[in-house]
Structures are given as structure tokens and as C-alpha cells.
Design a protein around this nucleic acid. Structure first.
Lengths: 126, 126
DNA sequence: CAGGATCCCTGCCGATACTG
DNA sequence: CAGTATCGGCAGGGATCCTG
């Protein structure tokens, strides 16, 4: 594992953080993961992204489209139908995301435990 | 690659997102990566995290300590010396982070290009 | 040196209402 | 159905000043 690019060159690091901001955008990872299955419609994503607002789904999808991670296809029908699909770039990103997604799923408990222990140490009262 | 856990169970997905929020915290990834080299002092991290404020470095490190990803060691000297080290859990997280860090470094240009093309399509004026 | 405490402002994001 | 537009709260985070 070589992180010299990150730790030695601040420019590289800044660049990485810049791109990571996109990953960090609250709903990005979930939307990308949901589209990993297959092409989906707007309403479908909205249903599966529990808790997301209509506005944020739109904003997130626009951002992903802008970054070339997702393609948006509009079918001129009534009622309208819009489908979203991962691009090739989007799929490589999902692959790169997989380890950290798996990590969060398998280490969530450890973090909760560490957090509880920390909170108990710092404020044992109550 | 199986993301059925993410796409089929919204609870799992929520859980993952919750943990990912921590990863998303503006400086988390950079600090973790910088500590990947070796144990470092507060001032050292501050110098290497170009652009971070003193406050945010403190806040970030406290969060990481709380989550059991980093250990904080205070040496009772004058002037004070405080060192930060990745825990075992922290190192596994860094490993899981590596692919996406590498991805951002190697696909930054593609994203920039896609973005420029998108912006040109939607607002060609100027 | 390594922070704690304050002030303050920006922009993220949710809620709501409206449209092709 | 799949958006756009608008308003508003509030928390993330920067700048600054102070301390053991």
C-alpha cells in the first residue's frame, strides 16, 4: 500500500479531496450503489433511497450526470419516463467504492462500541 | 460484485450511509491517509493538511478518536506533545479506502472533462 | 505546542407549492 | 411522473483570540 502520493504531495491530496467531496455528497454513494443493479427510473430511485427528498435526488442525479458517472435518458411519453444508468466511468467508481461500503457494513458495530466507550469515559454521569 | 445488501435492504443502506458520513467529513480521509505513514504530532498534521484550520483538525481528530480509529497520546512535557496513531480498526479502514483514493487520483481528469462538456452543452454562451 | 471558546456566515438540505 | 422554484433553518466550518 503506497500513500506517498497523498502524504507527500499536498497538491495530489487536495485533488483527491476535491473528487472525494463528490463521493461525500450525502446521497452519492447510495444512488451509485442502487444503479449498480441496473438502469432505474426516477421514481424507483426515490422509493429505494429511503429518506431522500425529491429535490436532493434531482440535485444528486444532475451532479452525477455532469461528472459523467450517470446517463440520463428521457422518453418523450405521457406521463414522462426518465431512466438513469451508470456509465462505464460510473461502474469503475462503484467498484472502487465496494471495499469501503463493505467495510462500513462489517465494522459499524465496532464503531458504535468505541463511541459508546468514549462517551462513557468522558461523561460517565447519567 | 454483490450489492444486494445495499439495494435490497434499505436498513443496511442507511447503516452504510451513516458510517459513510464519517468518511465524508471533509478532512477525515486526508487525516487517516496522513497517519497511514506513521504516528504523527498535531503540528505535523496541521502542516501537512494544507488548508485545514486548527479548529477543524482538532474536531476531526476527536471524532476519529471517539470512533476508535485513532489513538491520542499525551506526553506530560513542556511544551506539550501529543501524538496520534491509527488503531488496528483505523488501518483496516485505510485499506478499504485505498481503492477509491486511487480512483479519484486516476480519474480526476475524466471527471473534469465530462464536467466541462456538460457545462458547454447546457450553457454554451460566454 | 496543542488546544478551548466565541463569533459569525455560508450553503446544504428539507418542506412546500407549482408545472409540462 | 418527473421535475422546477422558492423559502428558511441550522449546522459545518473559518477566523480570531485566549490558556495550561
Amino acid at each position: 500500500m503506497d500513500f506517498s502520493g497523498l502524504s507527500e504531495h499536498s497538491l495530489e491530496a487536495c485533488r483527491a479531496r476535491e473528487t472525494l467531496d463528490r463521493v461525500a455528497e450525502k446521497w452519492t454513494v447510495m444512488v451509485i450503489a442502487l444503479l449498480g443493479d441496473r438502469t432505474k427510473r426516477f421514481g424507483e430511485l426515490k422509493r429505494e433511497c429511503v429518506g431522500i427528498s425529491q429535490r436532493m435526488l434531482t440535485v444528486t442525479l444532475r451532479g452525477l450526470e455532469r461528472d459523467g458517472l450517470v446517463v440520463r435518458t428521457v422518453y418523450p411519453e405521457i406521463p414522462p419516463r426518465v431512466e438513469y444508468t451508470l456509465t462505464k466511468l460510473g461502474r469503475t467508481m462503484l467498484e472502487a467504492l465496494e471495499p469501503i461500503i463493505v467495510w462500513t457494513e462489517s465494522h459499524g458495530d465496532e464503531i458504535d462500541a468505541a463511541r459508546a466507550a468514549y462517551d462513557h469515559r468522558t461523561s460517565p454521569e447519567e
